[in-house]
Design a protein around this nucleic acid. Structure first.
Lengths: 188, 188
DNA sequence: GTCTATAAGTCGATAGAC
DNA sequence: GTCTATCGACTTATAGAC
């Protein structure tokens, strides 16, 4: 089998893992679940990943790259205020998925914290990259308290994602999105 | 064995479950872990609870009663604004525990959502009771948008709890607490 | 390189001794 | 009523056939 096919299966497994881990949670997801979603035989997973942890790590990397792609798209907007509001708009656009499964990054971070492996540091790095980007936008708006505002905005999203998921009500996310856009506009 | 001792063991199991489930997470916690924490023989757990789910349900009830006790204490304060700020102050006081294990209610809600049983509705009820109480405080302050403000405040706490836990940094919770107190004061 | 069969271990739950 | 011994199901991981 050629290297390209081999790489294809590896990537398929990582992408399927990212999706299934979000929907079912880390502990409830078996390697069989991921293998089925990726259309790869169960026992064959270990040819590509030595342990389940390594596969989870690959899923985190995949998720991190998707988040980077989103950030690069937002960077095309000239005004940092518009970039932040576009980010909020993207969250609101995902409110139905969030009501069912929660925020992909947040639920993963919450679950991985309870495990002994070092994977919680990997998801913290992904979340830290988003936080740093948000801080740069607030700084470009001339705010001296950019870091604190970035934490507040990301926390507002993570929190309303949890409530949206707990009460299974996408309207919570939509209302909070409107409130956050007004808040961004109100900042000097 | 008398009924009082039996009730004592039941309550000890439920209280130990609430504590261990918060620290280790639902899926990582075995019945042996809970039995050990409650100082009850492992197999004997099934005399008091028919299934693991029933024991988790009892832990949720215990947690809900603790939250009710807190709310009753806050209700003694005459000003609704002071009640909300005292609630925030309580969150900040728990920032070290939150950095290690996250918010007890939030992590439980996030984990139970991934399970098939109906326990996610039970924790949603607990969280809904807190949300309703917060709404009443904002309404007493004369706010027509009391519900939306209650969602925003609870979301801010849940979100910063997740960030505090992910980055293992209690200072995040303390800074957000100060910001939220200023925000409450700023409301008409 | 790819996949099947199975080993090894864990956990929830039960049967039955005391 | 209390507790021990153990069953049965499930999951990760490996050995080895093709």
């Amino acid at each position: 089998m050629t290297d390209s096919t081999r790489a294809g299966k590896r990537e398929r497994l990582a992408a399927a893992a990212a999706r299934v881990l979000h929907e079912q949670g880390v502990e409830k997801t078996t390697l069989a679940d991921i293998a089925r979603a990726a259309d790869v035989p169960v026992g064959n997973v270990y040819y590509y990943f030595k342990t389940k942890d390594q596969l989870i790590g690959a899923a985190i990397d995949t998720h991190g790259r998707e988040l980077e792609t989103l950030i690069h798209r937002l960077d095309r907007l000239p005004d940092p205020r518009d970039r932040l509001k576009a980010l909020v708009g993207g969250w609101v656009g995902q409110s139905d998925v969030t009501a069912r499964f929660g925020c992909p990054t947040g639920t993963l971070a919450s679950e991985l914290d309870k495990r002994d492996d070092g994977l919680d540091r990997a998801i913290a790095t992904v979340m830290g990259a988003l936080l740093d980007w948000m801080e740069r936008q607030f700084a470009a708006m001339g705010r001296a308290d950019a870091r604190e505002l970035a934490v507040a905005l990301l926390a507002a999203y993570q929190g309303v994602s949890l409530l949206t998921n707990t009460f299974r009500d996408p309207a919570l996310m939509r209302a909070e999105g409107r409130r956050l856009e007004r808040w961004i506009d109100s900042l000097a």
